[in-house]
Write a protein that binds this DNA or RNA. Structure first.
Lengths: 230, 230
DNA sequence: AAATTAAATGTTATTTTGACACGAACAACC
DNA sequence: GGTTGTTCGTGTCAAAATAACATTTAATTT
């Protein structure tokens, strides 16, 4: 047996939903397309899976190309495969959900597109079914972050408790209680208090913390219940 | 613009991981292949996505073909896309996770394969990366069932509390406390007590329950915490 | 020295969880 | 017709987790 006969071969693409956090707002990295199809419109960053490449590698490649970053937290999300979703030619798109430290992001200049961070509150209309992809990614972010410490992937190496709290508040669009939230965080034993403070946002300053990498790995897949009903 | 040039078109398949429950054991539906490649070996049921079909429809079609069932609980799972995973020709497989009421299953006779239910404790070696797919599906089942009432999809319309409990015990391979488990179940308000009893498994008989469809839909996406740390 | 601002922390009531034991229903048996 | 055996169904109490709530502290600004 050499080939599967009479079957349709389809283009397989990856699209990345890339989240960042600037300390105030949750952000999404989009590109203004300098190429067809849908030239001059906003879209997610994507690319075709190459013949020698698995989809994960394709997604990492695309992400690296856009952000300059490697080893980013990434997770496979839904496949979008409506026959007519790309009017040029049938394409099945595997979506990936990525969380990056926005401070490590380095704009990669390209003639093909222009990248920009958008507040999640003000996302422009996107091409094809990319809006749906973003909606789904938001849902997934809320779901996972309620249970697992993934939001730390959005923060720099050193961060403060008020920063994490703001992040959670942005993700869930709620106000949290400082005392209860801090207690919950402490109970996870994920944080190591530093001796220095962040003086950017207050006179008193807020202590920096770092992630305890060991506990982080150990507890990552456990249910930590950061938010009880998202 | 008419086509994407110089890109690789790839076969796109779906593979279904189909779970069932016979009252005692959690089961997996597999086929003995009567066709190439890997003729006479066990595998998941799958098929190629057709040119006019989206992947969900392909999965439903494949499932219907094997079980005779429509409107089955199904969820997209991981995509498996290693370039060499199928030695005949590169194929990207989208996996689907399905939960069926084993009593509604009707064997569909076919010359191409022979279907059989296997206890999850005794799954044979499968072709390609299908073992990995099954492992992943088991994990996913545990994860989701800990939070959401998906296991009811495995039960007949009328079921008893001891039956549900056995099911949870099988899924998590633990012994549960009858009193605590019942309390938890009752607190979800998902069940409606029937007047008749199941006398199959005891002299006293156990009351039948049905799902309250309305609450079920309402609460399906909420965190119900059936099992605290799977 | 006083005023201002955000950070840090503690207490109490409520809810949820986990551990544990006994009476009720019914068929089978003598 | 009463006794026995088996599974079903429920209640209590202690511990842990959560939600609601106010005050003190550190450091800059005036």
């Amino acid at each position: 047996m050499t080939k599967y006969i009479k079957q349709t071969r389809i283009l397989v693409a990856v699209d990345c939903i890339i989240f960042g956090f600037d300390g105030y707002d949750l952000k999404l990295l989009l590109i203004k397309r300098g190429f067809d199809p849908e030239k001059d419109k906003w879209s997610l960053m994507g690319g075709f899976v190459q013949s020698d490449e698995n989809p994960e590698d394709a997604a990492s490649r695309v992400l690296k190309q856009l952000t300059g970053l490697k080893n980013v937290y990434m997770e496979q999300m839904l496949v979008f495969g409506e026959p007519e979703r790309d009017p040029i030619e049938r394409t099945v798109s595997i979506t990936y959900f990525a969380l990056v430290d926005i401070k490590k992001y380095e704009k990669q200049l390209s003639d093909d597109y222009r990248a920009e961070w958008f507040s999640l509150k003000r996302v422009p209309k996107l091409i094809f079914d990319h809006d749906q992809m973003v909606d789904h990614a938001k849902q997934k972010l809320r779901y996972k972050a309620a249970l697992h410490p993934i939001l730390f992937e959005l923060l720099p190496e050193k961060f403060t408790i008020p920063q994490i709290m703001t992040l959670y508040e942005q993700v869930y669009d709620v106000e949290l209680d400082k005392r209860n939230f801090t207690r919950k965080l402490r109970s996870t034993e994920l944080l190591i208090k530093q001796i220095d403070k962040d003086k950017e946002n207050s006179k008193k300053g807020a202590f920096y913390y770092k992630l305890d990498k060991t506990t982080y790995k150990e507890k990552f897949t456990k249910f930590l219940n950061f938010v009880s009903n998202p």
